[in-house]
């Protein structure tokens, strides 16, 4: 009789997985390597150098990209905070408030941003903002980001809440805790890992967005992706590679963080 491991193995699956990883990583690694290229011509290797990293922080484009990076961070933090708060409230309603009128509709609404194709959201927001006279600027970007971040924050939070039985809160209320106390002192701490990963997910999603931002951004406002797009359209320059590599680093730090948080969350359980 075949052993259990044999049943799990199919010939060629390892090779496919490795190919998959090569395809996923090759472009990123190549760009990271070339960002250390001393030569100004981006295809010829001219030796190792940090020139382009210096250029990112002190070069002629530095103020533009710095402002864009700050905008991106402000928007990502604000959008993630707002979306996480809104999603937490929604998750409590969905999992702890029994049946209520419009529950199915509410669920559909929360997931609406995932269902509407991005380009439709972008165009609709642009036209809508212009129709209601909401002058585009940082604020319009933020509002749009909050909207599409809500479902991303909602997913891990509600998944976490479904795995917490309500007996803890019941017990607290049996001991005369008010619902509010039961929420803040019992449920919230238990939900923390879910909320944190919801926050991180929303944060990254906001940081990543290009299309919607490009449509709703106001005069003179850039985020990092739109600034990079504007620059890349005229050709891939070495300083863009340095910026990309820096962003790659930031992303890796964030994923590692959320991974570690996820693991501690599981251990606690």
């Amino acid at each position: 009789m075949a052993s259990v491991t044999d049943l799990r193995r199919f010939p060629g699956f390892l090779a496919i997985t490795l190919t998959c990883l090569v395809v996923l990583y090759a472009p990123l690694i190549v760009v990271a390597v070339y960002s250390f290229n001393a030569s100004t011509s981006i295809t010829n290797w001219g030796g190792f150098s940090l020139t382009w990293y210096v250029d990112v922080f002190t070069g002629p484009d530095a103020p533009k990209f710095q402002r864009a990076a700050i905008n991106s961070l402000i928007i990502a933090v604000c959008a993630a905070v707002a979306a996480t708060s809104i999603a937490t409230a929604a998750a409590v309603a969905m999992t702890r408030a029994g049946r209520f009128k419009g529950k199915t509709l509410s669920f559909a609404l929360i997931n609406l941003p995932l269902m509407v194709p991005e380009v439709v959201t972008a165009v609709a927001s642009l036209v809508f903002f212009s129709a209601i006279g909401f002058t585009t600027g940082l604020l319009t970007i933020l509002v749009a980001h909050i909207v599409f971040c809500i479902p991303f924050a909602y997913l891990p939070i509600s998944a976490r809440m479904q795995s917490i039985p309500d007996t803890y809160e019941q017990a607290a209320m049996d001991l005369y805790a008010t619902p509010r106390q039961a929420f803040t002192m019992v449920l919230l701490p238990l939900m923390t890992p879910g909320i944190l990963s919801g926050f991180l997910l929303a944060f990254i999603i906001s940081l990543d967005d290009f299309l919607i931002t490009n449509f709703v951004k106001g005069a003179g406002v850039e985020t990092l992706p739109t600034a990079i797009f504007g620059s890349v359209k005229q050709g891939i320059k070495p300083n863009i590679m340095a910026i990309s590599t820096l962003m790659l680093g930031v992303s890796i730090v964030f994923v590692s963080l959320s991974w570690l948080i996820g693991r501690t969350g599981q251990n606690k359980k």
């Binding site: 933090v77 604000c78 940082l138």
Partner: peptide
């Protein structure tokens, strides 16, 4: 508190513009 601070930061940004 976090909300209030971010709101303030935003207002100053839009006004600044």
């Amino acid at each position: 508190k976090l909300f209030a601070t971010t709101a303030l930061a935003l207002i100053s940004l839009t006004v600044g513009a």
